[in-house]
């Protein structure tokens, strides 16, 4: 069965969605990510959706679930690279991506995650995480 690869980059997990997902694939991604966060103790999840041309309420719910569940495991989720047409459509659809942060691109997303983690950890972390790409 097809799977969406999850990359580990230091304390973050990075997922790049390259195809429009059908439902089973999206549901698998949700459970795989939750398992990975638990296993690795990752503090952040970056989901690159720049290649995704459609987000309907099903896909939106999956993204919301991922954010909610990773939050419980003490990790933040950032969605990066949402196409403007997708963003406009989501608003009209009426879908609030609750708990999902968003950023323009992967770099900005990483910055956002780092600042969120630093805030939570009381600024005690230095930024070595961000060089350690495994």
């Amino acid at each position: 069965m097809e799977k969406i690869p999850i990359l580990r980059m230091g304390r973050f997990l990075l997922v790049t969605i390259q195809v429009d997902l059908y439902d089973r694939l999206a549901e698998n991604l949700e459970s795989d990510l939750v398992h990975m966060v638990r296993k690795t103790g990752a503090r952040g999840v970056l989901i690159d959706i720049s290649a995704v041309s459609i987000i309907d309420s099903f896909m939106g719910r999956i993204l919301g679930n991922i954010a909610m569940m990773t939050k419980v495991l003490d990790a933040e989720t950032v969605v990066v690279g949402m196409q403007p047409a997708v963003a406009i459509t989501l608003i009209e659809l009426g879908l609030p991506l609750k708990g999902v942060h968003s950023a323009l691109n992967v770099e900005r997303g990483m910055e956002l995650l780092r600042s969120k983690i630093a805030l939570q950890d009381g600024e005690s972390q230095d930024d070595d995480i961000y060089h350690s790409i495994e």
Partner: peptide, 11 residues
Amino acid sequence: VNQTKLITAAS
């Protein structure tokens, strides 16, 4: 934008 709206509704 209209394409995306249409396809999302269709979905």
